[in-house]
Design a protein around this nucleic acid. Structure first.
Lengths: 105, 105
DNA sequence: ATCGCTTATCGTAAATATACGATTAGCAAT
DNA sequence: ATTGCTAATCGTATATTTACGATAAGCGAT
């Protein structure tokens, strides 16, 4: 994209778009759904339910972790992933705040 | 991305991620803000307020139009853009529905 | 310390997205 | 029909994302 212009925008604009970016792939939407259903889930279980290779799922998990939507706890050789509701809650609030501000009544 | 796997996911998963994708760039967040503030706005006014070239702003407007978040009406040599609240409202509802379903109380 | 399992990371290829200058197209005047 | 304006599109360069196989790293056994 030539040069990135993130510094030309406000913190809020960047924050909102970053949250949206994490939600901008169907695989990550599906992973969040799976984790919500099972409440807690190891990585292999997720891979089995996804139409993607293990390496790809791992990349998506990394992106979800980056913004804090999910957490991963090491448990022996496995890793248990779970949703971090507090961060998701904050994202939902801010996204709503923004959408409400642009939706004219 | 090698091969796109959209057909491997549900319609809802694709719809939600597509809406999020449109919101996943700070420029598009800012454009929506500008249009909400001015209620109605011609393209040139938006370009003046953006740290981007006219061609780039036009590209972002096209993406916003694609999902229906904004509408553009031709008015002589100019084009007046405005927010389409009904589509934004639907997006907000569905996004909230999804986020509520994955946030464990 | 070797084996078996799980998951992250590396390397890489291909698709998309971002950004811009230049050009084109459309309309309202002169 | 020429001029002047606005905005879309084209062509192109570069960055980022997505996807996968292969490899490495970490841990709990044996």
């Amino acid at each position: 994209m030539a040069i990135s212009k993130t510094e030309e925008f406000t913190k809020t604009e960047n924050k909102i778009s970053d949250w949206a970016k994490v939600l901008s792939h169907p695989a990550r939407i599906k992973i969040l759904k799976i984790l919500a259903q099972k409440n807690i889930c190891m990585c292999g279980d997720i891979v089995d339910l996804m139409p993607l290779a293990q390496a790809t799922v791992s990349q998506h998990l990394k992106e979800l972790k980056r913004v804090g939507f999910i957490k991963g706890e090491i448990e022996g050789p496995k890793i248990c992933y779970c949703i971090d509701s507090s961060i998701l809650d904050e994202a939902q609030k801010k996204l709503n705040e923004f959408l409400n501000s642009i939706i004219t009544q």
